[in-house]
Simulated scan of single mutants.
Amino acid sequence: MKVQSKLFLWMAVFFFALSGVYAFATMTSDRHIEPIGLTVFILTGLMCAMIFGYMAVTTRHMDDHPEDDRDGEIVQGAGQLGFFPPTSIWPFWCALVLAVMLLGPVFGWWITILGGALGVWAVCGWCYEFYVGEYRH
């Protein structure tokens, strides 16, 4: 994970440098800078810096991973990575609710409010799907 954090550091440096080049390249004769592209590059750099900061702090409290070892073997990374559910209907319901919410600005804001209420149900169902039925703790 140390390599990934350094990657995000260099991406942040790149986007901050690119925002300076972009500001210089888009400057007009009356000293106005195109604000949208500059904002995008600065926010992208800040997001990369935020991820770098999180990963740098997290790696201090973790053991070394096999991918951090230069002499590491592929076999060292073997094992279970986590639990992934075989099937779930809840992503479908969340996508359907999002579609209903996005129809709100087109047909009326009341649809967005209805979609938000259904969204609470869908997200709770997805979060707690393994606490009901045969998976109950």
Score class of each variant (00 low, 15 high):
38 L>A: 14
68 D>T: 06
45 G>F: 01
78 A>G: 07
104 G>S: 03
67 E>F: 13
116 G>D: 06
134 E>H: 07
24 F>R: 15
111 I>W: 10
45 G>Y: 00
67 E>I: 13
11 M>S: 13
43 L>C: 11
26 T>S: 15
79 G>W: 03
86 P>T: 14
79 G>R: 06
33 I>N: 02
10 W>Y: 12
83 F>V: 08
55 M>L: 15
1 M>S: 02
79 G>V: 07
119 G>W: 04
49 A>Q: 02
136 R>P: 01
39 T>L: 11
9 L>S: 07
124 C>L: 14
30 D>Y: 07
114 L>Y: 11
68 D>P: 06
99 A>N: 06
59 T>F: 06
87 T>W: 10
101 M>N: 02
22 Y>M: 12
84 F>G: 04
35 P>C: 06
53 G>S: 09
123 V>N: 00
81 L>T: 11
104 G>F: 00
78 A>I: 04
51 I>L: 04
52 F>C: 06
132 V>F: 12
111 I>R: 06
122 A>F: 06
40 V>Y: 06
122 A>Y: 05
90 W>I: 00
4 Q>K: 15
113 I>H: 06
29 S>C: 09
41 F>V: 02
24 F>E: 13
83 F>P: 01
22 Y>W: 15
34 E>K: 08
56 A>H: 12
9 L>H: 09
58 T>R: 15
73 E>V: 14
75 V>D: 09
42 I>Y: 01
72 G>I: 05
55 M>D: 02
58 T>E: 06
39 T>A: 13
11 M>H: 10
116 G>R: 07
13 V>W: 05
85 P>H: 03
76 Q>V: 03
12 A>C: 11
130 F>P: 01
51 I>E: 01
25 A>Y: 14
44 T>G: 07
82 G>H: 06
132 V>Y: 09
46 L>N: 00
91 P>I: 04
67 E>A: 13
135 Y>R: 13
51 I>C: 01
6 K>E: 14
62 M>P: 00
131 Y>N: 09
38 L>S: 12
115 G>N: 09
21 V>F: 14
133 G>V: 05
49 A>G: 08
91 P>T: 04
50 M>T: 12
13 V>C: 13
129 E>I: 01
19 S>V: 09
48 C>Q: 00
30 D>M: 00
113 I>T: 14
44 T>N: 05
66 P>E: 02
122 A>D: 08
112 T>Y: 07
51 I>M: 01
22 Y>I: 09
129 E>Q: 15
14 F>L: 15
78 A>P: 01
1 M>A: 03
54 Y>S: 02
5 S>I: 00
86 P>L: 14
73 E>A: 14
131 Y>Q: 09
33 I>E: 08
116 G>K: 07
110 W>I: 11
